[in-house]
């Protein structure tokens, strides 16, 4: 019963967000962003609502939603650490740092720690090649990432 109420709430709130954004030009991406911002992820049950509001098919919404890695289909941890895995960062020791991050946080790629503190994700270029290796914590970019900083991050996210 409680589940039922929760999903009805999600639907009601989702419809509000969709209604706010649907008159924008090319409204699909802004709506998906809006939903993710609201719920921390895009609840799968909201996708048919988006399809209906924009008069497009469920399949189309699904196609767009799954194309972008940044849209989540389940909630992330309280913090999200993204580590760049692209060529410039690899050449500056990114691989080793990535492994280290995985050890320190106790999670693999795309995983969230058991305490819900942090989610670790790969990213392919943050545009910070000049300051490689690069990472991003909760939307803030970090250049010249090193072991020390990683250690600090690992502690900080668990506070």
């Amino acid at each position: 019963m409680e589940m039922q109420t929760a999903s009805t709430d999600i639907a009601a709130r989702a419809i509000e967000i969709i209604d706010q954004l649907k008159s924008a030009e090319g409204p699909l991406l802004p709506i998906l962003h809006g939903l993710q911002e609201e719920f921390g992820y895009v609840p799968p049950e909201t996708l048919p609502l988006v399809a209906n509001a924009l008069n497009i098919s469920r399949a189309e919404v699904h196609g767009v939603f799954t194309f972008y890695h940044d849209y989540r289909d389940h909630p992330a941890g309280r913090h999200v650490l993204k580590i760049c895995r692209a060529e410039a960062c690899q050449s500056m020791g990114g691989d080793r740092l990535a492994e280290r991050a995985s050890e320190l946080l106790g999670v693999n790629w795309h995983e969230t720690s058991a305490d819900g503190a942090v989610t670790l994700e790969p990213v392919y270029c943050l545009g910070l090649c000049a300051c490689a290796p690069a990472a991003m914590l909760d939307g803030e970019v970090i250049g010249r990432l090193d072991d020390e900083q990683l250690q600090e991050i690992a502690t900080e996210v668990r506070l």
Partner: peptide
């Protein structure tokens, strides 16, 4: 129908 995912993950998907 749509193509879900991207790159090597791309697959044909009926509906969602």
């Amino acid at each position: 129908l749509t193509i879900e995912g991207r790159g090597f993950n791309s697959r044909v998907s009926p509906g969602m």
